[in-house]
Lab assay of single mutants.
Amino acid sequence: GTVKVQGITIKVPNPDKAYKIAKKLAKKYNLTVTRKGNTIKVE
Rank of each mutant, 00 (worst) to 15 (best):
G1Q: 06
T2I: 13
V3H: 05
V3N: 05
V3L: 12
K4R: 10
K4N: 08
K4A: 09
V5G: 05
V5P: 04
V5Y: 15
Q6S: 12
Q6L: 15
Q6V: 13
Q6P: 07
G7F: 11
G7C: 15
I8L: 11
I8R: 07
I8C: 15
I8H: 06
T9S: 10
T9A: 08
T9M: 10
I10V: 08
K11H: 13
V12D: 02
P13M: 13
P13C: 15
P13Q: 11
P13G: 11
N14A: 03
N14V: 05
N14Y: 08
P15D: 03
P15F: 14
D16Q: 08
K17L: 14
A18G: 02
Y19A: 02
Y19M: 06
Y19G: 00
Y19S: 01
K20T: 08
K20E: 11
K20I: 12
K20V: 08
I21M: 08
I21Y: 11
I21K: 02
I21T: 04
A22I: 15
A22W: 15
K23P: 00
K23C: 15
K23R: 12
K23T: 09
K23A: 06
K24I: 14
K24G: 07
L25F: 08
A26N: 00
K27D: 04
K27Q: 10
K27F: 07
K28S: 07
K28Y: 14
Y29K: 02
Y29D: 00
N30I: 06
N30Y: 09
N30L: 08
L31P: 00
L31W: 11
L31D: 00
L31Q: 01
T32L: 12
T32I: 13
T32K: 13
V33L: 07
V33K: 01
T34F: 06
T34K: 09
R35S: 04
G37A: 05
G37T: 01
G37Y: 02
N38P: 03
N38S: 07
T39V: 13
T39M: 09
T39D: 09
T39S: 09
T39Y: 10
I40Y: 05
K41Q: 10
K41I: 15
K41M: 13
K41H: 13
V42L: 12
E43W: 14
E43R: 11
